[in-house]
Design a protein around this nucleic acid. Structure first.
Lengths: 219, 219
DNA sequence: ACCTGAACACCGTTCAAGT
DNA sequence: ACCTGAACACCGTTCAAGT
């Protein structure tokens, strides 16, 4: 087997081969994007990013073909840290505390950019998104913590990693609304307590299914 | 006291005074809007609405000065029905079942248009929105059911009407994502179980507060 | 009193032309 | 190999001109 270029991560090698101006543009674009997204949220104007980076609009699209590719680059480090954190917490805390602490960190991390919690939840829909592979790693990390707690019997067995990931980001999304910001930890507490095993709150008669009268197009 | 025009709802009287063509445009616009919003979600193109209603763009804006005013008109009936339903459930079910059944209906109703759950949650932020007064009535109705259940001691006392309203719409928003659609009732069940009184799941050490390293602008 | 649609200031995305 | 920016097809919103 030849020794040359057999296992170097493709991203890194691509960066190596880049022309100097391309590499400079890439990095500068990322810096500026971080500022603009911090200001305007994940729906930030891409034109603004290119403008403030003093770069042609096509250059932005060349380096980040889609908005989610840009977000992915912006979030890569923080996501990696979260994945590591899962292992650290698993090693240092009880299963339940590791799970809840990690989910809280997930909610905090999702709040770094306005609209990100919703964007992460939207990721669940199309697995082709540039963000969704990164989210997959997050979900696996959280799923492991969940499985640990479930194996102990301290968390109800009928919730999935998808469930808790979605619920945590949903709480993060709610906390973006002004009056709920300070209740974030409280809402997370309600969510966590919903994970306790035990009899359900309601006898769940569900008085009727989807109403047959007055649907959206004609009511 | 004069008998003339002392308590007629202003909306109805305004409709009375309208010119015939105005009234026709108003109603037709509403019909078309219902279709377009059903197709495209709450972010639907207002231009499309005017176009398909075969009406000048300014006419749409005259009748519905903002997107939320249009949504409000679209949702008025369903919201009124939900408020009534709260009383009906309170009269016919236990406090807990009335609360959970109503919250489930809220989540179902919020799902009639794509993006509506998020729009309802966003309402909590600015009380000046055309939707927020309608949401206020919803929250009051739900808050009463919650208070009933809390008075019984069957629901934890440290949640507010705002909390449960927000959480229910958040679950509705999650259920818009494909893989979670069929888990809507399950997620609601987790939420409801989070309302049970009792000791918290975690001892909540919250290993560290907001991280001091790697914030959004520089990490 | 109401309707109309052009005008304005924005978008995202693509792609021929340059270097 | 990479950058540029005009071009295209959309938006929401306003407002002078019409009837």
């Amino acid at each position: 087997m030849p020794v040359t270029a057999h296992a170097r991560p493709p991203e890194l090698s691509r960066q190596r081969d880049q022309r100097a101006d391309a590499r400079r543009n890439h990095d500068h674009l990322l810096e500026v994007a971080r500022l603009v997204v911090a200001e305007q949220g994940v729906g930030a104007s891409l034109r603004d990013v290119a403008r403030r980076a003093e770069v042609g609009l096509g250059t932005l699209y060349r380096h980040f073909p889609t908005r989610e590719a840009l977000l992915d680059a912006l979030l890569r480090q923080g996501f990696a840290r979260l994945v590591e954190l899962a292992d650290e917490l698993a090693a240092t805390h009880t299963a339940v505390d590791a799970l809840t602490a990690w989910l809280r960190e997930l909610a905090l991390s999702a709040a770094v950019y306005r609209g990100l919690p919703t964007a992460l939840a939207a990721t669940l829909d199309d697995p082709d998104s540039a963000l969704s592979t990164a989210c997959g790693a997050l979900r696996r990390a959280g799923g492991q913590l969940l499985a640990n707690a479930q194996a102990e019997g301290s968390v109800r067995p009928d919730v999935t990693g998808l469930d808790v990931f979605a619920l945590a980001t949903a709480v993060a999304a709610l906390a973006e609304q002004g009056p709920l910001a300070e209740r974030r930890d409280h809402l997370l507490g309600v969510l966590f307590d919903g994970l306790r095993p035990g009899p359900p709150l309601a006898t769940q008669p569900l008085p009727r299914g989807p109403r047959d009268d007055a649907g959206p197009p004609h009511g």
